[in-house]
């Protein structure tokens, strides 16, 4: 692989683009494939098969050829509401995972660059913050403030926009009250039951890093369920 290609791949990963690397295992040549971009002569004749691999997000050798395709998919968007202690550990645990994290907290003293270096922080109320983030069924929400004023609007947005994972911190009692409020706001039991509350898988620990680990574990498990 040429250094130029390697650096281009790294840049595309940083920009969260979707692309594939195609390699001819006989000639050793490789190049980047993107939707709508034409391929060089060497790869052109395999364009249809490369496209098919790319669309099914597959890695592998195209049958009957010597062309290897590796697809890069966009990272999963994870929105953390509440720039709290647990969120700091969550961000650390997630650093080697393919998650694009945004932290929302209207409380300026929590949501600081100093507490969350290199992180997208939105210092606004959830309703305002969600205007800045494109969300869909590939988005996850982790609500950590256990303050209804902040968590509830975020949870409502997540349900309405069909997030694939919605988790909310809080005891069983806190969660029961939360469900009650969502019911009053007109959400169905089915919608409310999607929320993982209390959040995380049972590991037993109650310290901030332990809770963060249990949340990340649940998030990864849910990511592969689909």
């Amino acid at each position: 692989m040429q250094l130029k290609t390697l650096q281009e791949i790294i840049k595309k990963k940083e920009n969260k683009s979707e692309f594939a690397i195609v390699t001819n295992l006989t000639t050793g040549n490789s190049e980047i494939f993107e939707k709508g971009k034409s391929l060089s002569k060497e790869f052109e004749k395999f364009a249809d098969q490369i496209n098919a691999f790319f669309h099914s997000k597959k890695n592998g050798i195209i049958e009957g050829t010597d062309i290897f395709v590796e697809s890069y998919i966009r990272p999963i968007k994870v929105i953390i509401v509440g720039a709290v202690h647990i969120a700091q550990y969550l961000v650390n645990f997630a650093s080697s995972l393919n998650f694009e994290i945004s932290v929302i907290d209207p409380r300026g003293y929590f949501a600081t660059k100093q507490r969350f270096p290199n992180m997208k922080i939105i210092n606004k109320w959830p309703d305002e913050a969600f205007k800045e983030i494109e969300t869909n069924s590939n988005t996850a929400l982790i609500a950590l403030t256990h303050d209804p004023k902040i968590d509830d609007p975020a949870l409502q947005h997540a349900i309405k926009n069909k997030f694939y994972y919605i988790g909310a911190l809080g005891s069983k009692k806190t969660h029961a009250n939360r469900c009650e409020r969502l019911k009053e706001a007109g959400f169905s039991d089915k919608e409310i039951n999607q929320i993982h509350g209390p959040i995380g898988i049972k590991l037993g620990g109650r310290a901030a890093p332990e809770i963060a680990l249990s949340i990340i574990a649940q998030l990864v498990a849910e990511t592969y369920k689909k």
Binding site: L3, L6, K13, K57, V220, T223, K226
Partner: peptide, 18 residues
């Protein structure tokens, strides 16, 4: 399909070359 990992090997390769 989604995946939740990014091993950053290519980034490390670039650092080594530097």
């Amino acid at each position: 399909m989604k995946n939740s990992f990014d091993e950053k090997i290519l980034e490390e390769a670039n650092d080594w070359i530097k």
